[in-house]
Design a protein around this nucleic acid. Sequence first.
DNA 1: ATTAATGTTCAGAA
DNA 2: TTTCTGAACATTAA
Length: 269
Amino acid sequence: MCRGIASIVGRTIQRVSRPPCGYRQIRIQPEIERLNERVARRMVSAVTRLGKRVVIHVGDEALILQPKMTGLVVLDKPPDGEHVRLRVDLVGAPPIRLLFWDRRGLGTVELVRQAEIQQRLIEGRLGPDALEITVEEFCQRLGETSRPIKVALLDQKLLAGVGNLYASEMLHVAKIHPATVSSKISRRKLRLLHIAMREILLMAIAHDGSTLSDGTYRNALNESGTYQNQHRVYDRAGHPCPTCAAGRIQRMVQAQRSTFYCPRCQRRA
DNA sequence: ATTAATGTTCAGAA
DNA sequence: TTTCTGAACATTAA
């Protein structure tokens, strides 16, 4: 998403608005009028990412978009006009329009002072980013929880950026059973998992993400991702394991969310 | 036609 | 303290 909207950097915001939409409004802080006062006529200096959040830097403020399950940050072309939750018009030729589209409406938008990002977001809420964290810190943090490894990976306070789909994928690459108690996993296996995590996330990003059966995910140009064609286990219950061919992919539920794995090559520690 | 499931996060309970 | 549960919402697959 960040890559797709990179062209707004250097542009000046004309105004932000909340288009009429037949659904309940998403949470936006501060309220839209106040938000508009604070960002209108200011320039976007950068677009960065904080775990799964998209951060748009404008002046000494940061507009933080949290897409959650079905949110998208796109330019001009939303999947449909019914679920556009926030519109950011940018000055220039041609004019560009940044849209926060969210079908379920679980996403949120908040504006915080640049200086407050550290304390408001990171401390106590977000761990190190999954693509920044060192092997040492990765092993250290996962070594300290007794939760199942799959559940721990989804805890954004431990590390930020791993979601449900990719957690299953990386555990399969590293050949770790999703229910294994995190602290009981060997140092060697955790190092393998760190590599698998980077591999999976970087590949998924390179392929523009995964558009699942509901067709929600789109890139900034309203095109489907292609990483779903590379899935090893996610949503593939019953299929043969891509690694060992003999095992069948199984689905189970952990922390009320689906986990997929191969019982044959992901043995418990 | 119901029900369960969904690339998520958070408050509040256990 | 850490971990678990349910809720927020709209849509689709079973």
